[in-house]
Design a protein around this nucleic acid. Structure first.
Length: 1007
RNA sequence: GGGCGUUUAACUCAGCGGUUAGAGUGCCUCCCUUACAAGGAGGAAGUCGGGGGUUCGAAUCCCUCAACGCCCACCA
């Protein structure tokens, strides 16, 4: 009859079993259901570039805890999973792969072929990533899995772009981009890195027009950009140059007359000569200066391949570095060269080609963030308002500031990327002069009257010629064909990845409707029903580095498209760092592979630790070790191992275990590649011991119960009739349940794990189970003990489930076999799975501080006896007499329980009740906390014991003095809250009593 | 440069105005007691980063200095 569990928890079997079980039962699938309150989370879609790392484990564990908890609470809980196409990251990974395998660039294989290769890559890695997510126990609604390039998402992108274009929020403009002249593409800021590089610092001078012998000097690190100079700039209050402001100089290479302007932001009188050349098309600062001084020219001197274009006059066609020499030489010849200084300068490089970045002016698409001309709030303002008026709340609150500060700049959002992988910009263009304007319309023929599906605009191209732009909405392939037939050409660029990510909460839920046919096998297509049922979502869980890139933009598009916020709460979790406080990243090579942890410690342990880490600090450190593949020793990672500096590690062995290994292996991690000669280490961290041990503790507590459930009969448990330790346990259970629920509501994840752990381990296992052992042998007491044990364990498994779903599900099953009906105070049939069990709550009336205080007295007693016993190494043969004169109520409570208190304290002889051991025998020790007499005749070191007592008395007296001074202080008594004053009075009485007992005992000790 | 955070035991972190500052790991002693050695019992270990202030009372609030880190901007 009693179910026998294996001795230790084996995570692997459980993980496999329950993943299948949960999915087969369809517990994670949510359908619109008006009878339940919805709770939705959309996953921050991982990039399809590669493997999951620890940050994903953290992020997704927290979401799973929330979604499982809400599901148990009876919400219609939907966790929408998916992945992100991650434009540049994915394209560059595949480009590199193609190049390493076939030595072909993307231009050589062509757009269609490259995109096809990326799709192949994506299919492979999407499967892998989603599989990894499943292994963590993520209870996503897998049938709704989305990818940001799915037709559903594409429709949303098209619709959004179309509306923004039509409403004038999207415009075409120039912007300086990071240009990779080698790959001939622009790269995002985060795809560049800065490195100190040997360079030069040249000083030149230009002659001021109409002022003989007047020169003005400036310095530069890039002389070739002189070809694109369109001004010299000085500080408006710089006395050296004041008189020259407004005059012109002649740029010697091009012969252009360029003005000397004043700009207090660009020019710093304390730097260099105080005068700076202005090259708006090739320097970000100069570009900003040009925006403030639109009257000066903006001259692009580069071709996409990094050679000088026709604006460079005679230097046309030269590579930029050759041009640099030539330009400098010419200045020397003209006597305008003022010297060169070798200097180490920080230079931006492209991460992908490792070549220097050129700031390059190009046409880009933008979303206008500024306030509108009609005075209504613009997109940025609207997005800010949602947070300032509290519709969207940040947890922790301080992060609202990052969001608001960034939006307050109202900088336009550049949404075009010169890539092939992504949502193509849905705009077709044709030069105006090629259009038949005689009909009085620029519109393409044959589509007039379809203005709900397209929008037209005019703009200027690079050369200042008119260009007709036509933006086409979704579901309008016919229009696209008409346009193409008439010579309109689609913009080659794709949209910023964040543009589709920004729509994620509503695009995945069915906006813009109407329903689409199922476009991918068994995946459920969203529609207006899902949109209505699950939007807005409940909580967004993410990390702070994408508050502006992603969070803000989701709010923006939610408000713009749906007129409704995308989520009510944003929880920002800490960022993981390594043992040295550095952020985990691929380039640092200090990441942890979560699957290594799952393998070694179990998914529950990983999850437990992730939850423990998620407090409200912004960083959390995670020291990690490599596990020697030969001897299983944990070798902590050191700083010098990072950044790929250590390719191989030598195992130092483990002296404490007498292991001298000395073999070599390759450090592990999510981003390592294989070393053909030595094995790659798995990773581990002692931090995960706690979770693994906790799972095992739960396992064995259940195991204990199952071994003692014979004859179990469900029945009502009447609180009033219960012994004190039961009342205590139920009080603790009710309290724990209440505070855990509150912690979840407030996103205090680390509190959740700590509270549950402490309750289970220190209270349920260490005390209650120990105390129950005696009762389980007593026929009269056994039934109640069984009911309480089963009922409390039932509650524990529910509380644990969101954090540790696998072990709790296993134990739920085992408990279900032995005690299918259980519960407090009344038994009920248990649900078929912990996964769908009801989240517990217990009557407030169970919580009794008074009972808890009485129990604490007993604990003090037992601990005191154990301490003495331990100090003198009392073995069974030694006589150890204990008598107790606890506070009367406590004594009365536990009188009947001496049978278990004695073994608990590990003592042979135990009498409870009023003290009868007077006079105390020589060598007795008094524990003042509980007034217990422990006698070890002849065994005590009296001098040492006296000294100990003196020390204790001194400590107590110090405490007493503190309390006394407080209570004698009128201000304290009058101004502190009454309960605090009372607390102090109680403390005073307590301490005085303790001191009296100690002193009495000290006298005895000295004979 | 702007913003934010951290500094408490050897390590990783709780505590955030009120008796003698806690946990896990590690360390020391004892115990393989039929739930659990991934365990049990006990112990040692901290001028709460430095300095100043507010308060009857400060690890906790304020100021300041220092170190470390993260985000954003920037570096002719």
């Amino acid at each position: 009859m009693p179910t026998e569990l294996p001795k230790a928890y084996e995570p692997k079997d459980a993980q496999q079993k329950w993943l299948t079980f949960w999915e087969e039962r369809g517990y994670f699938h949510a359908q619109p259901d008006k009878s339940k309150k919805p709770y939705t989370i959309v996953i921050p879609p991982p990039n399809v570039t590669g493997a999951l790392h620890m940050g994903h484990a953290l992020n997704n564990t927290l979401q799973d805890v929330l979604i499982r908890w809400r599901r148990m609470q009876g919400y219609n809980a939907l966790w929408m999973p998916g992945t992100d196409h991650a434009g540049i990251a994915t394209q560059s990974v595949v480009e590199r792969l193609v190049f390493s395998q076939e030595k072909k660039t993307r231009h050589e294989i062509g757009r269609d072929e490259l995109v096809k290769r990326i799709w192949d890559w994506k299919d492979k890695y999407e499967t892998r990533i989603l599989g990894q997510l499943r292994e963590l126990g993520a209870s996503c609604d897998w049938k709704r899995t989305r990818f940001t390039l799915d037709p559903v998402c594409a429709r949303a992108v098209r619709e959004t772009f179309f509306r923004m274009f039509r409403d004038g929020y999207i415009y075409r403009g120039k912007r300086l981009v990071n240009w990779d002249a080698h790959l001939q593409t622009s790269v995002a800021d985060d795809e560049t890195y800065t490195e100190d590089t040997k360079g030069g610092f040249w000083t030149f001078k230009y002659a001021v027009d109409g002022e003989p012998d007047t020169f003005i000097s400036f310095s530069t690190t890039r002389p070739e950009t002189m070809l694109g100079d369109s001004a010299l700039c000085v500080h408006p209050s710089d006395e050296r140059y004041k008189h020259l402001i407004g005059k012109t100089v002649t740029q010697p290479h091009t012969g252009r007359k360029i003005p000397i302007i004043a700009d207090g932001i660009l020019a710093d009188p304390t730097l260099g000569t105080g005068c700076v050349k202005v090259t708006p098309a090739h320097d970000p600062n100069d570009y900003a200066c040009w925006q403030r001084h639109p009257e000066i020219a903006i001259i692009n001197i580069l071709n996409p391949d990094g050679t000088i274009n026709e604006n460079g006059g005679e230097y046309k066609g030269l590579d930029r570095y050759k041009a640099r020499e030539a330009v400098t030489k010419k200045m020397e010849e003209l006597g305008l060269f003022g010297g060169k200084e070798d200097r180490v300068i920080p230079l931006k490089f492209s991460d992908r080609s490792k070549t220097p970045i050129e700031p390059y002016l190009s046409d880009q698409w933008f979303v206008k963030m500024a306030d509108r001309d009609d005075g209504k709030p613009g997109l940025a303002q609207m997005t800010m308002d949602a947070v300032t008026d509290g519709r969207v709340k940040f947890f922790p609150e301080r992060y609202a500031r990052s969001y608001l500060d960034w939006l307050a700049e109202k900088r336009d959002w550049c949404i075009s990327r010169q890539l092939w992988w992504g949502h193509r910009i849905p705009v077709w263009s044709k030069p105006l002069h090629a259009l038949d304007v005689t009909r009085g319309s620029y519109w393409p023929q044959g589509i007039a009257g379809d203005e709900t599906r397209f929008a037209m605009r005019e703009t200027l191209d690079d050369n200042g010629n008119g260009l007709a732009l036509c933006c086409v909405g979704p579901d309008a392939e016919d229009l696209e064909q008409v346009l193409q037939a008439q010579g309109f050409v689609q913009d080659p660029d794709v949209l910023d990845t964040w543009f589709s990510s920004a729509l994620w909460p509503h695009s995945t839920l069915g906006w813009p409707g109407p329903a689409l046919p199922e476009e991918r096998g068994d995946r459920a297509a969203p529609n207006w029903d899902t949109m209505r049922a699950f939007y807005p979502t409940g909580t967004l869980v993410t990390s702070r580095d994408i508050i502006s890139l992603w969070v803000a933009r989701m709010v923006l598009t939610g408000l713009y498209n749906v007129n409704e916020i995308p989520f009510t709460d944003v929880f920002i979790h800490p960022q993981l760092q390594d043992a040295f406080g550095e952020r985990m990243s691929k380039s640092t090579g200090n990441g942890i592979d979560p699957l290594d942890i799952v393998e070694r410690y179990g998914a529950d342990s990983l999850r437990y630790q992730m939850v423990s880490i998620a407090g409200d600090t912004q960083d959390s450190r995670m020291p990690v070790s490599n596990v020697c593949p030969f001897c299983d020793t944990l070798v902590p990672i050191k700083q010098e191992h990072l950044r790929g500096r250590t390719k191989r590690l030598k195992c130092p062995g483990d002296k404490t275990k007498g292991i001298t290994c000395g073999k070599e292996f390759r450090p592990g991690g999510p981003w390592t590649s294989d070393d053909p000669e030595v094995p790659t280490a798995k990773q581990a961290s002692e931090r995960f011991d706690q979770g693994r041990n906790f799972a095992n503790k739960l396992w064995n507590a259940t195991r204990f119960l199952l071994m003692n459930l014979e004859g179990y009969a469900p029945g009502e448990v009447k609180l009033d009739a219960l012994p004190t330790e039961d009342k205590w346990l139920l009080s603790r259970l009710a309290t724990t349940t209440k505070v855990v629920t509150a912690a979840l509501e407030g996103y205090k994840f680390s509190d959740v794990s700590r509270l549950v752990y402490d309750f289970v381990w220190s209270e349920f296992c260490d005390w209650y189970i120990e105390m129950s052992k005696g009762r389980l042998k007593d026929a009269a007491a056994r039934p109640t003990a069984q009911r309480v044990l089963a009922g409390v364990l039932d509650g524990i498994l529910r509380l644990v489930h969101p954090v540790m779903p696998f072990v709790s599900e296993s134990l739920w099953e085992a408990l279900g076999e032995a005690a299918p009906e259980r519960g407090l105070p009344l038994p009920a049939k248990a649900e078929e799975a912990a996964c769908i069990a009801k989240w517990p709550s217990y009557p407030e009336s169970w919580i009794s501080p008074e009972v808890e205080a009485r129990f604490a007295r007993m604990q003090d007693l037992v601990r005191g006896v154990r301490e003495v016993r331990n100090r003198y190494q009392v073995d069974d043969k030694t006589k150890l007499d204990v008598s107790v004169k606890c506070i009367e109520s406590v004594a009365a409570d536990f009188n009947t329980l001496s049978a278990f208190i004695a073994p608990l304290a590990g003592i042979a002889n135990f009498t409870a009740g009023p003290n009868t051991a007077k006079p105390k025998p020589n060598g007795s020790v008094v524990r003042p906390e509980f007034e217990a007499y422990v006698a070890l005749a002849g065994y005590i070191d009296e001098a040492a014991e006296a000294k100990r007592l003196e020390k204790q008395i001194a400590e107590k007296q110090k405490a007493l003095a503190g309390v006394k001074s407080k209570l004698s202080n009128e201000k304290f008594v009058s101004s502190a809250p009454p309960e605090v004053v009372q607390q102090q009075r109680d403390a005073l009485a307590d301490i005085e009593k303790q001191i009296a007992t100690l002193e009495e005992n000290l006298r005895d000790m000295r004979g």
